[in-house]
Design a protein around this nucleic acid. Structure first.
Lengths: 215, 215
DNA sequence: AGAATAATTAAACATTTGTTTAATTTTAAA
DNA sequence: TTTAAAATTAAACAAATGTTTAATTATTCT
């Protein structure tokens, strides 16, 4: 039995297919056969490469984790930026990342809402803690420097992330069903609209002097 | 073959068990056998009562739908309230409902993020449209009366709902992992905290004069 | 080229899935 | 109490699931 030495591009191919189907139908509703059919490989390849379906999920998570991390550290260290500007940039990063990796983000959202102890959830939880701690420290810094109000930090973060998740996962449904403008069809436009909205929202919410209507 | 005349309390019992397990593990990851074991009934009862697993899900949704509807209509018609007060009350209703029916809400969140065309998603989508239209009309009214800023209405609604969803579905994880206070253990306290946060958020976000720090 | 290892395949495996059947027990009415 | 309907059950069903096997094809290295 070979020790699973890989031909990485094919693994990538399988993971991409899995990511797509997981996002559409969910982890449990997607069979290994579905994935292999989508990726045009034999059913046995998943277990050959990853050992199991769950092993493949784990590798998918670990691979994407690197995308989700970093970039914010540099932001925090930057002394030339105001706290509100840091927040705006952080939000922009977050939105861009989640839109870029939309299928994966949707998998994360769905599996994260499961019970503690469910393998997929536990696997994903750690993924988000670093990011949230960074956001927290930015807000904290703003409060200490009297630039920000003393808001509920955790819920402020939860609000930002929740808003992004909501838009990503329910897609344009939440917009199209409420307004008659079918404008949300273009994902890039929707993304920019979301960034603009969140910038405005946190300026009003965080800044002590209410000078932030113009973005 | 009997025409499925029901003993309603037993159906309720099965639905309650299903709701609980769906919330914990997801629709697909929950087998009919799991549900029947949880409800202490025979495996055949689900098909006897509901025809199929999906039929049971449909009945569960329709039953809960009545809880999720209404209450906001009266709010809109009330002429004695300012728009911001209406928004605050609407938020309070929304949070209370979702916390009260937390398992169901989690099922909704998870299934709603699936592809259009997936049965469960389509079934749920219509559930939320009325609520969102009502929220929309409140904000619209506030903007027309120059009480509110000209914000992005759809995204403002999406933000509020997204924040609640996030707190409900990831539970205290998103809070506990960021702050060292283990205070989020008490759901009622968390609920009140969320309401307070959202009230403050929308005051700052919506009101033209920034007078709303004190809740 | 030849040997060794890796990659790939079709087929089979054991479980689990949702669902159905056919028999039995319970319930309720006459 | 007798009888018909409803409720409940254990067992079986067919299909789908994740996984493994054993054989075959490709690749790589000497």
């Amino acid at each position: 039995m070979p020790d699973v030495i890989t031909k990485p591009d094919k693994k990538e191919h399988i993971i991409a297919a899995a990511e797509k189907l997981f996002a559409m139908r969910g982890y449990d509703a997607t069979s290994v056969r579905d994935i292999c059919h989508e990726a045009d490989v034999n059913v046995a390849m998943v277990n050959y490469y990853f050992g199991s379906k769950e092993g493949m999920f784990r590798e998918m998570v670990e691979q994407k984790a690197s995308f989700m991390r970093g970039k914010l550290q540099a932001l925090i260290a930057d002394k030339s930026l105001t706290s509100i500007r840091k927040m705006e940039i952080a939000i922009e990063h977050q939105v861009n990342r989640m839109f870029l990796h939309k299928p994966f983000t949707m998998v994360v959202i769905r599996e994260m809402s499961k019970d503690r102890g469910v393998a997929q959830r536990d696997m994903l939880q750690e993924l988000f803690i670093p990011n949230m701690k960074l956001l927290r420290s930015i807000i904290n810094q703003g409060i200490r420097s009297a630039e920000f109000r003393k808001v509920d930090i955790e819920l402020t973060i939860a609000t930002i992330i929740g808003a992004i998740w909501n838009i990503i996962s329910t897609g344009d449904m939440m917009i199209a069903s409420v307004s008659r403008s079918a404008s949300a069809a273009d994902p890039e436009a929707l993304k920019q609209r979301l960034i603009r909205h969140l910038h405005q929202l946190i300026r009003h919410h965080l800044l002590i002097e209410a000078n932030g209507t113009k973005s």
